[in-house]
Computed example of a mutant assay.
Amino acid sequence: MTAEELQSLIAAGLPCEHIEVTGDGRHWAAVIVSPAFEGLRAIKRHQAVYGTLGQRIQNDEVHALSMKTFTPAEWAGQPRN
């Protein structure tokens, strides 16, 4: 799996205003900004992202995924480099 494929899977399952995926083919890091995260705690946000990956998580196609999840308002308040 490539970063682009993983990004597409997440974006197909969640409305994303911003998404960045990096990794080495098994271990991934993602920054995901979605209005769907409004009112959700971190665990529910992560579960929503895992839900977009379905069997790929269970089949170990995606071994590890580290996530930073934000609502659009939270993302707007984040410092940029």
Results as ranks from 00 to 15, higher is better:
63 H>V: 10
58 Q>V: 13
2 T>C: 05
48 A>R: 09
61 E>N: 06
70 F>W: 04
11 A>I: 08
55 Q>D: 12
73 A>H: 11
16 C>D: 08
42 A>I: 08
6 L>G: 00
22 T>H: 09
30 A>L: 03
60 D>E: 12
72 P>R: 02
68 K>L: 09
44 K>W: 13
11 A>G: 03
56 R>D: 10
49 V>R: 05
17 E>I: 04
45 R>C: 11
78 Q>D: 15
34 S>R: 05
49 V>G: 06
39 G>N: 04
66 S>K: 01
4 E>F: 06
66 S>Y: 12
43 I>S: 09
48 A>Q: 14
27 H>Q: 10
31 V>G: 14
54 G>F: 10
56 R>F: 08
26 R>D: 05
12 A>V: 04
37 F>C: 04
74 E>Y: 12
42 A>V: 14
70 F>I: 04
25 G>A: 01
1 M>R: 01
33 V>S: 00
75 W>P: 01
60 D>A: 13
48 A>S: 15
8 S>K: 08
73 A>Y: 14
18 H>G: 01
37 F>W: 08
52 T>S: 10
77 G>D: 08
50 Y>T: 03
41 R>F: 15
55 Q>E: 11
11 A>F: 10
64 A>C: 13
10 I>Y: 03
15 P>M: 03
19 I>G: 01
17 E>S: 05
13 G>D: 07
44 K>I: 11
1 M>V: 13
16 C>N: 05
28 W>D: 00
39 G>M: 06
10 I>F: 01
64 A>V: 14
50 Y>L: 06
80 R>N: 11
76 A>W: 15
6 L>I: 08
80 R>E: 15
46 H>Y: 06
29 A>L: 02
9 L>C: 07
67 M>C: 04
2 T>M: 02
65 L>S: 09
17 E>M: 02
73 A>C: 10
1 M>P: 04
47 Q>Y: 07
81 N>C: 13
11 A>T: 07
78 Q>M: 15
11 A>H: 05
48 A>D: 14
14 L>P: 00
33 V>Y: 00
77 G>N: 02
59 N>Y: 10
2 T>R: 03
32 I>L: 11
39 G>C: 04
76 A>T: 05
44 K>V: 10
66 S>W: 01
74 E>M: 03
13 G>M: 03
47 Q>I: 08
37 F>Q: 02
24 D>A: 05
72 P>F: 05
38 E>P: 02
75 W>L: 04
76 A>S: 13
22 T>Y: 09
61 E>S: 07
61 E>D: 13
10 I>L: 05
2 T>Y: 00
43 I>C: 10
19 I>M: 04
75 W>K: 01
29 A>P: 00
8 S>E: 13
31 V>E: 12
48 A>N: 12
35 P>E: 08
33 V>W: 00
50 Y>P: 02
62 V>N: 07
20 E>P: 09
18 H>F: 09
49 V>H: 07
3 A>H: 01
66 S>H: 06
72 P>M: 04
9 L>M: 07
6 L>E: 02
15 P>D: 04
47 Q>K: 08
26 R>V: 14
79 P>T: 15
54 G>S: 10
68 K>D: 00
21 V>A: 04
32 I>P: 08
